[in-house]
Design a protein around this nucleic acid. Sequence first.
DNA 1: CGGGAGGCGTACCGTACGGTACGGTACGGA
DNA 2: TCCGTACCGTACCGTACGGTACGCCTCCCG
Lengths: 215, 215
Amino acid sequence: MQPSPALIDEPPSETPSPRQQAVLDAALALMVEGNDPLTMDAVARRASCSKETLYKWFGDRDGLLTATVRWQASRVHAGRYEVSGLDATTLRENLLDFAESWLAVIGSRTSVALNRIAIAEAGSRRSNLGGIVLANGRFAIGERVKPVLEAGRAAGLLAFEDSEAAFRTFFGLVGRDIQIRLLLGDALDLDAAGIRSDAARAVEQFLALYGRAKP
Amino acid sequence: MQPSPALIDEPPSETPSPRQQAVLDAALALMVEGNDPLTMDAVARRASCSKETLYKWFGDRDGLLTATVRWQASRVHAGRYEVSGLDATTLRENLLDFAESWLAVIGSRTSVALNRIAIAEAGSRRSNLGGIVLANGRFAIGERVKPVLEAGRAAGLLAFEDSEAAFRTFFGLVGRDIQIRLLLGDALDLDAAGIRSDAARAVEQFLALYGRAKP
DNA sequence: CGGGAGGCGTACCGTACGGTACGGTACGGA
DNA sequence: TCCGTACCGTACCGTACGGTACGCCTCCCG
């Protein structure tokens, strides 16, 4: 199953200037604090800029939101790909690393706030904020994990037919009910130790399902 | 891990009158259509009642939303418990049934719309709509599935220490990325056949992880 | 038949918020 | 020194929406 066409990310659109980045950071900070409903006025006040500048730079509220999501996403994408010469240990470490970083992301207040806004927007307006969040979250990590899974299969460590299906199982084992509970306001705290043990459990379960003793 | 105190459902509050049920159905219909932002005026128009009546019956917008969520939940809860004399086939059937009905719920437009509103509300207001949705969704099904798992363990069919943890794994295997994708607006269609095969796969994976050949 | 209650439709109020206009200031180039 | 540009702060406008008030109709009960 591929991302549907509507979710393809638009051309990256040049990176914002430092001042613009400061504005976007202000918007992020407001979202994370979550007290104000992220009004344009609040962003302008927080960033010490005028609303007119906001509209000049980002067009409208939706443009600001979109730029904010992209800006945040641009800071999260930092991954190393090590798919050549994969042995069981390396595979396990790779999966563990993905699981940990994914749990850290979905557990962060930033991610929760961003997803809440995108979900709320997806229910009403025709801004594909939701599509952008999906493209930079769920689908981005899928595209990074699947090569690892396929390398594991090529090395005889994993057995599956459809890497997308295998990844979705991995995704479910890692995330379980965490994201929906956080989004709905459950006070679920994930400390670093909890994330590590959760990730380890998910990886072991995944390997139990898809692992294959090397012949 | 127990539901946090904030999520305990308030006393059931007497069932709405037929006329009130019609109003709540109108609200649900509007949410599902998703074109309007669910304004009080729209509900009143759709239900052919006056806004004043809405406020008289439900107090305020939040009360209407809460009543709507409860009303919808009251229609979904219909489960049979068969935990005595569990054999492998019955266990598998029970789990399959839970998985199928859960997938049908989270895939329904009603659930998506309701969760979107609850999530949006959880980001701002202090209404625990999110808590109510969680209590009637994720936690309600957990309380129904766990006895089945424990009966399976008592019958020597399953092996686990913590039934909550086992259930969360089951939850992840069933739901995977479906709910977050739907919430974010991905056009993921789940037909009955897809739900059946998804549920079957999840159950087999769960049994592969937690099943134990009867001694 | 009279009167009260419940409820519909509509008009209205206050506020919040997206978006615009405008004056004032700092700064860089001619 | 003068001018244009970019931007800040603030005032302003229009609209949408939560919540309230009121007139009128219907129906039930005496």
